[in-house]
Simulated scan of single mutants.
Amino acid sequence: MKFNEIEADSWDELKPYVDTCLLPITGMNGTESPAEATKCLEDLRDIMDLVEIPFRGRIVTYPAYHYFDVREGTKQSIANLCNRFKQQGYKYIILITAKNNVKFQLDEADLWITPKENGDFPSDEEISGYIRELWSS
């Protein structure tokens, strides 16, 4: 479920059942035209659907981290976000992107979901397997 679907007065009741945070990473760098930015967001939405729909109720999706530049500290910013999510009580942090060139090693995150090398998104079964493996570890 998306962060804005959770009522403030129901969060304490839901919190024990929602142990996974999904942080979308759009991966834009600021050079995109409006049409290119729209495409980035549509692609991100499409890959997020592969997680959000089948795992609704156990995963909370936070707002996307849109702009990405490792040279400007993006990696550390995302690591800090992951740490803060864990401090809130999330056991697992999943990062997801529709871009091939955004994934990087990050110990603070538990799983990256990215396109395959050829640009295709993982299948429903592959994503389900990744998440179930994460939860059973």
Score class of each variant (00 low, 15 high):
P63H: 07
E36S: 00
I113R: 01
P122F: 12
K15I: 00
E125V: 08
K99T: 08
G129V: 02
S136H: 15
E52C: 03
P16L: 11
N100R: 12
E72I: 14
S10A: 10
D12N: 08
S33M: 00
R71Q: 11
K39H: 10
S123F: 05
Y90E: 07
N4I: 15
A109T: 06
P115E: 07
N83K: 11
E133M: 06
A8L: 15
R84H: 10
C21A: 13
N101L: 05
S10W: 03
K116E: 12
D107N: 14
E32W: 00
K99M: 13
T97E: 02
G57W: 06
I78P: 00
R71K: 15
E125K: 10
M1Y: 12
N83C: 07
G119T: 07
S77W: 10
D49M: 11
D69R: 13
Y17N: 15
N100W: 11
L134I: 12
L44D: 02
I113L: 04
D12F: 05
C40N: 12
K39F: 06
A37P: 00
C40E: 08
T114E: 03
E133R: 05
Y62F: 15
I131F: 08
C21S: 10
Q88N: 14
F104S: 07
A79P: 08
L81F: 09
N4K: 11
S137C: 12
I78L: 07
I96E: 05
E72Q: 09
K91W: 14
K75V: 06
Y62G: 08
T61Q: 08
K91N: 14
G57A: 11
Q87E: 12
N29S: 14
D124Q: 15
D120T: 02
D107M: 15
G73L: 05
K75R: 11
V102P: 00
E108M: 14
I78C: 01
I96F: 05
Y92G: 07
S137A: 13
I93D: 07
Y17S: 14
D120E: 08
I94R: 04
D124F: 14
G129W: 04
V102N: 01
T114V: 13
R56C: 11
N100T: 13
K91A: 13
E52D: 03
Y65W: 05
W11S: 14
A98S: 12
W11T: 09
I6A: 06
N83W: 07
L14S: 08
G27V: 09
A37K: 01
Q76P: 00
Y65P: 01
T26F: 00
F55P: 00
I113W: 01
E5A: 12
K91M: 10
T74E: 09
D43H: 02
D107S: 15
V51Q: 02
A37R: 01
C82L: 03
